[in-house]
Amino acid sequence: MTERQLIEGCKKGDRNCEYQLFRQYGGTLLSVCRRYARSEQEAEDWLQDGFIRIFDKLDQYRFEGSFEGWMRRVVVTTALKKFQKKSFKNEIAGMEFVPDTPVEPTVFSNLGAETLMEMISKLPDGYRVVFNLFAIEGYSHREIAQELGIEDSTSRSQLTKARRLLQQQVLDLNKAIRV
């Protein structure tokens, strides 16, 4: 069954097609949710809500552009909606000074995906969301600002701090390994 047939089937409410779609993209979209969520449980909840939203909004997909990209965007929007209702308490004192700790980028390439995922999950909520949106999803600062209801400059600032904290984590990891 081609992707188009699968989508057409889902649009008609064919349960088998919906299940096939879930099996095909569930793993990738779960990774997306894990990058934004604070816990595995939360990520699974968001994935469920994301798929419900995908099925509900499938009629809006006009076969223009990547279908997977469209689904990712729906899931990310779902996650952001949940996010805005959660607390960003950790970042109330989020103007803390984060030292510039230059780390060669190649160090990150030596780390596995799960390790990188874990490092991202340790970032404060705001930093994590902005880093995910900018670095991985490819959103611009203007788009991020619109999605989150913040200023462009806040987005830039949080991205910078997210990068520094990730570098700091690599240094901490390195120290832990040496010890």
Binding site: Y19, T28, E44, F108, A135, I136, G138
Partner: peptide, 27 residues
């Protein structure tokens, strides 16, 4: 640095969580 994260995590697959399908249908 961003590219490395994008390459490693952009298409990362955590495995289809089959146990969630029942929940999606129920919801």
């Amino acid at each position: 640095m961003d590219n490395i994260f994008r390459q490693k995590l952009g298409q990362h697959d955590s495995g289809t969580p089959e146990h969630l399908w029942a929940g999606i249908e129920a919801k």
